[in-house]
């Protein structure tokens, strides 16, 4: 599904990612953990194609195609979804309008028929029910005045409507209390399926108690320092990141 090879990324002239290799198979859930400043968010923005994150070396293969030169909207239409750490407010634009606009833009891109208002509403109602989201949240402007938990749930709703092949979850647990975290994790788990890969980026192990990954990678100093199964997360919880920061400093 996703194959990152020797990825080097520069932001404002500073190299942040220094040769990332990562491979996600269909339906796999990978967690990337690492200390602050290790390049976790840079990796997620780079996959999504944000301007200012310059790939200087290496490639990102998505379904076999190198996407490094694609625009963010083209990557989205190809099936890449980023659940933002800080979802952005769009005042005055109703959540429903935004979702419909997004879904139909992608359908157009893929040469599929757009959904009309009726079809869309019917589909949306189903998704909303599955995720336990209130109608009120659909009518309000995108993320405007949403609580931290509502914003993250809104991200999950968008994922559910847009049905991406790859979802990158950037610090989905940040700013959530334990109840909100459980609700969001439950939403993510519902959206797991054998065709959908997920890359979960987090600082803390606690999220992994609720969303159990198949693989865990430790990112520090712009490189994957170690990869393993879910037990690696527990080890990190016990020992912290000190070992990895040291390794790099010594190198």
């Amino acid at each position: 599904m996703l194959e990152i090879k020797n990825l080097h990324v520069t932001v404002d002239g500073t190299e942040i990612l220094k040769g990332i290799d990562l491979s996600l198979g269909s339906g796999e859930m990978h967690a990337i953990m690492g200390p602050n400043g290790s390049g976790k968010s840079t990796l997620s923005y780079t996959i999504a194609g944000r301007a200012g994150y310059d790939v200087t070396e290496g490639e990102i293969l998505f379904k076999g195609q190198n996407i490094v030169d694609l625009s963010p909207e083209d990557r989205a239409a190809e099936g890449i979804f980023l659940a933002f750490q800080y979802p952005v407010e769009i005042p005055g634009v109703a959540n429903t309008t935004f979702l419909k606009e997004a879904l139909n833009a992608m359908r157009r891109h893929r040469g599929e028929d757009e959904l009309d208002a009726m079809q869309f509403v019917r589909m949306l109602r189903e998704k909303v029910k599955e995720l336990g989201i209130s109608d009120d949240m659909l009518k309000r402007a995108v993320n405007a005045g949403f609580s931290g938990g509502e914003k993250k749930r809104n991200e999950i709703l968008q994922m559910s409507v847009l049905e991406p092949a790859l979802a990158v979850l950037d610090e989905t647990d940040s700013g959530l209390d334990i109840d909100a975290l459980k609700i969001v994790a439950d939403g993510v788990n519902r959206l797991r399926n054998p065709e959908r890969s997920m890359l979960m980026i987090t600082h803390y192990q606690r999220l992994l108690d609720y969303i159990v990954p198949d693989f865990v990678h430790v990112l520090a100093h712009g490189r994957i320092q170690r990869s393993g199964g879910k037990e690696l997360a527990q080890e990190l919880e016990k020992n912290g990141y000190a070992e990895f920061t040291k390794t790099d400093a010594a190198a």
């Binding site: 999504a48 625009s71 963010p72 909207e73 989205a76 005055g92 935004f98 997004a102 833009a105 992608m106």
Partner: peptide
């Protein structure tokens, strides 16, 4: 903001439509 534009583009909406959407939201009242 660039954040708003990137957010909308990440959802598959091209830049021009994104701007129109944001401005229409701004003018909604």
């Amino acid at each position: 903001s660039e954040d708003q534009l990137f957010y909308l583009r990440q959802r598959g909406i091209d830049e021009e439509t994104a701007v129109a959407l944001i401005v229409n939201g701004f003018c909604r009242d």
